[in-house]
Design a protein around this nucleic acid. Structure first.
Lengths: 143, 143
DNA sequence: TGTATCATTGTATCTTTGTATCATTGTATC
DNA sequence: GATACAATGATACAAAGATACAATGATACA
């Protein structure tokens, strides 16, 4: 019976505004990947920006740096970032208007899935979630 | 192929103070599950503690590791532990029955606000978000 | 200027840990 | 006995971690 105190539920990074939840069913790689994709989609990360090194972000999030490296490689496959051995990782410019749209769609998709996944874990009904979302939409002041 | 099992009447684990009795009518999964639940209830296992790996405990108890994994997953459904692929299994902090509902509402509220905030930052309409959510709800397999 | 050396950064690969799926076994029911 | 079902086991798979390696760039010094 180990008294291992390595288990923090949530870890926030300081090098990037993202966080991981170790209790969630979603794999860490996916969590990291989805949040970085969202940052790019929202313009919080701009073309040319350098991402933290895999070791830096991994230390922040208290995960293995290979986990971050895997997330980066997947984002590279999506043509969102460029990962260069020995140099670092950089945000790419979207190649077309269509790819920007695709990025937005994919981001919304993953955000929606995240909410559904969490809601289901709480045993909430579709109706409850929809209602909460409508309410939230009105409560948040429109821009 | 005949399997000699007479030697396993009772097996005690060294990695956890629990044991299984192969002659008992109660399924092994239940025996393991009940005893771990009791250890948590009595505080012998505390929030943050790491449980033995499924293979470790299985070897101790002379049981297939899937049997332990099943017990772990059931305990996870009871919200007593968190089982993470590739990482291990950890005891969760208890949530009182009384605060469960409030916590659920709070979580839903913050999840909904988060989605709204992100969606607005992406310049999406309420209708688009609602539609995406409905789709996501159907894509995730219903329990 | 060239290059040796070292620190930094990502990569490859193997291990550890849980998951998914199908096969086997034992038991209840007919 | 035959059959159906639940429990357990066997095996292949996938996520995350550990460790050794390779590419790049900075620095020192001949």
């Amino acid at each position: 019976m180990k008294r291992q105190q390595a288990h923090r539920a949530i870890a926030k990074a300081s090098s990037l505004p993202i966080e991981v939840d170790f209790r969630e069913a979603v794999p860490l790689t996916e969590q990291i990947r989805n949040q970085i994709r969202a940052l790019i989609a929202r313009g919080k990360l701009q073309p040319g920006d350098q991402l933290p090194t895999v070791r830096q972000l991994a230390a922040d999030l208290r995960v293995n740096f290979n986990t971050v490296a895997r997330a980066y490689r997947m984002l590279e496959k999506e043509a969102l970032i460029s990962v260069r051995h020995g140099r670092g990782t950089f945000v790419l410019a979207p190649v077309s208007e269509a790819s920007k749209e695709a990025l937005k769609r994919e981001t919304l998709h993953s955000l929606a899935h995240h909410l559904v996944q969490q809601a289901r874990a709480l045993g909430l009904s579709e109706h409850e979630v929809m209602a909460a979302l409508r309410r939230a939409w009105q409560e948040d002041e429109p821009p």
